[in-house]
Amino acid sequence: MRAHRSPARSRWFGPVELTTPPVINPGSNNRPTEHDDGRAIIEVIFLAVLILIPVVYILISLIRLQATTFAVTQAARDAGRAIDSAPTIADGIDRAQQIAAIDLADQNVAAASITLQFIAPGTECTSANQITPTLEPGAAYDLCVTAVVTLPGVPTVLTGDHNTVTGVYSIRISELREGR
């Protein structure tokens, strides 16, 4: 004969305890009596707004920074190509400034905030390292395009011209350059 097991004990999951059902208020559409109705939704909305606003601001700032970085990189490349294909260096610098302004305007960066500098290859883009560009065959120099990054919601009084992004393009004047 087999031993009878109690229904309160389960063979695989351990003891099962019987609980009492929640108290039902007779006049409340058979819902349990709880005084927390709707508060969870308010808390979730409050926390979502509290977290969402800074996250959106950081996202917009990063997108703005990326757009400016892309703009100066594109401007440096296009300006360098314009100088390399120009008949004279003065004409090339004028073309480079115009093309850089167009590339920055394409990404909504103020063209007034750009600077073009010519430096020795591999050096830092500072005013101390500037050189005079030339179209002589075999000449090599780097073109630096620098623009000021404007962050949304931050006044220029606080940031000034300190938030800059620089794009660099290396120019090598070919020995077989046309128009020599």
Rank of each mutant, 00 (worst) to 15 (best):
P32I: 06
P32A: 11
P32G: 11
P32L: 09
T33G: 05
E34I: 12
E34M: 12
E34Y: 13
H35F: 11
H35R: 12
H35N: 12
D36T: 15
D36V: 11
D36F: 12
D37L: 11
D37F: 13
G38Q: 03
G38W: 12
R39C: 06
R39G: 10
A40I: 10
A40F: 14
I41R: 11
I41W: 08
I41F: 14
I41A: 13
I42P: 01
E43S: 04
E43L: 05
V44P: 03
I45C: 06
F46E: 00
L47K: 00
L47M: 07
A48N: 01
A48T: 14
V49Q: 04
V49F: 11
V49E: 04
L50W: 05
L50Q: 01
L50V: 05
L50A: 06
I51P: 00
I51Q: 00
L52D: 00
P54I: 02
P54D: 02
P54Q: 04
V55I: 13
V55W: 07
V55R: 01
V56E: 03
V56L: 13
Y57K: 03
Y57P: 00
I58P: 02
I58K: 07
I58F: 07
L59V: 08
L59Q: 03
L59A: 07
I60R: 11
I60C: 06
S61E: 00
L62E: 03
L62Q: 08
L62F: 11
I63P: 02
R64F: 10
R64S: 15
R64L: 09
L65M: 13
L65I: 12
L65V: 14
Q66P: 00
Q66S: 11
Q66T: 06
A67L: 15
T68Y: 09
T69L: 10
T69H: 15
T69M: 09
T69P: 04
F70Q: 10
A71N: 05
A71Q: 03
V72G: 01
T73F: 13
Q74R: 15
A75S: 09
A76K: 05
A76S: 14
A76F: 00
R77F: 12
R77E: 10
D78E: 14
D78S: 15
D78H: 15
D78L: 14
D78A: 14
A79V: 02
A79P: 10
G80A: 01
G80P: 08
G80S: 03
G80F: 00
G80Q: 04
